[in-house]
């Protein structure tokens, strides 16, 4: 049974297990330092489809089917799918899983969606409301770019704080307590907005939300930074990560020794010109489901606080002069 503590933090007393997980990605992600961790890499960004929207749906299907087959779980055993992406109306997810016939809950948490879906899947399982649940998210560079920024062939210059949307998808299947990795607790974040209006500096828009959520989990669970081998933020990138360190430093806490960021891990900053790092739902999803969960399972990492971050930005409202609200949800993943 899940038990509500305080400040959005819930403890999952049955400690649900992540049965299996898989990640799929594009060529750039395959060329990055975590390339070998992906279960599927496509050399072509179109994934054999005629529109970028279809490509993203295909990408999500690939992560989903790999996760199922790795765990030896059939589609029929799943109670619910919690899925989301960056496209308007969660198009990537809805069209990606429309043929599965599995009850579907569509989520939008911008780049925090992987944590959001994992939180909900775990709570459902913890409360016996589901046997197995899938948490599934994706992003695609080309479908995000045409919706949020410019056409692919437009000649624009990216600012140094801009981040590169990851073409990737991750899927985790959560079920009853069995083998590690276990989900021990979660914090559902609140919206934090410190007035950042620059859509090319999402790291700065999201860092305060990550700070609040991580701080809440540590405080409510009476833990310190050093109780974790890794505090993994979603996609703050280089700028957002620096800001996060600074915010914790003001509290007298040094988080930099245990912190890493999915946006910093997925690309090779020397060879790939991605400016401040990776972003998008697929960034934290593929790093978590391709790399981190495997390391927790093997016991290389004992306690991980996964805090995916999202910039809840609407191009319409940003054009109206509004600032960008940030959000972050945290999941405590453990092998103990």
């Amino acid at each position: 049974m899940s038990e509500y503590l305080n400040e959005g933090t819930i403890i999952l007393t049955t400690e649900p297990s992540v049965y299996s997980y898989a990640a799929a990605g594009g060529k750039m992600e395959g060329d990055g330092p975590l390339g070998s961790c992906f279960d599927y890499i496509s050399q072509e960004s179109d994934f054999g489809e005629s529109t970028w929207e279809k490509s993203e749906s295909r990408l999500q299907q690939l992560a989903f089917s790999h996760a199922l087959s790795k765990g030896g779980i059939s589609e029929g055993e799943l109670s619910f799918i919690f899925a989301g992406d960056l496209q308007n109306q969660c198009t990537g997810s809805a069209y990606g899983i429309r043929d599965t016939g599995i009850p579907f809950i569509g989520l939008y948490g911008a780049c925090s969606t992987m944590a959001e879906s994992l939180v909900l899947a775990s709570i459902f399982v913890d409360n016996n409301a589901a046997e197995y649940c899938a948490a599934l998210t994706s992003s695609h560079f080309c479908s995000a770019e045409r919706q949020f920024r410019f056409p692919e062939t437009y000649g624009g210059q990216r600012t140094p704080t801009a981040q590169w949307t990851v073409t990737g998808s991750g899927c985790a299947i959560v079920g009853k307590h069995n083998n590690p990795p276990y989900i021990k607790g979660v914090t559902i974040g609140k919206i934090v907005d410190l007035g950042i209006k620059d859509a090319n500096n999402m790291g700065a828009a999201m860092a305060p939300a990550a700070y609040e959520t991580i701080k809440s989990y540590l405080k409510v669970q009476k833990k310190t930074v050093n109780d974790f081998d890794l505090i993994l933020t979603g996609d703050l990138g280089s700028v957002g990560s620096e800001i996060l360190y600074e915010l914790f430093r003001k509290d007298g806490v040094d988080i930099s020794t245990v912190h890493n960021d999915c946006g910093l891990m997925i690309y090779d900053f020397e060879k790939q010109d991605v400016h401040a790092g990776g972003s998008g739902c697929g960034c934290s999803a593929s790093v978590l489901c391709g790399h981190i969960l495997e390391r927790v399972k093997k016991g290389e990492l004992k306690n991980v606080l996964f805090a995916a971050t999202g910039a809840l930005m609407s191009t319409t409202v940003v054009q109206q002069g509004e600032s960008i609200p940030g959000i972050s949800h945290a999941v405590h993943i453990s092998c103990e």
């Binding site: 140094p160 410190l194 500096n201 700065a204 700028v239 800001i243």
Partner: peptide, 13 residues
């Protein structure tokens, strides 16, 4: 926060 962000965000080259 705006001051902190400006300090940390790199300028264009």
């Amino acid at each position: 926060y705006s001051y902190l962000t400006k300090k940390i965000s790199p300028d264009t080259k």
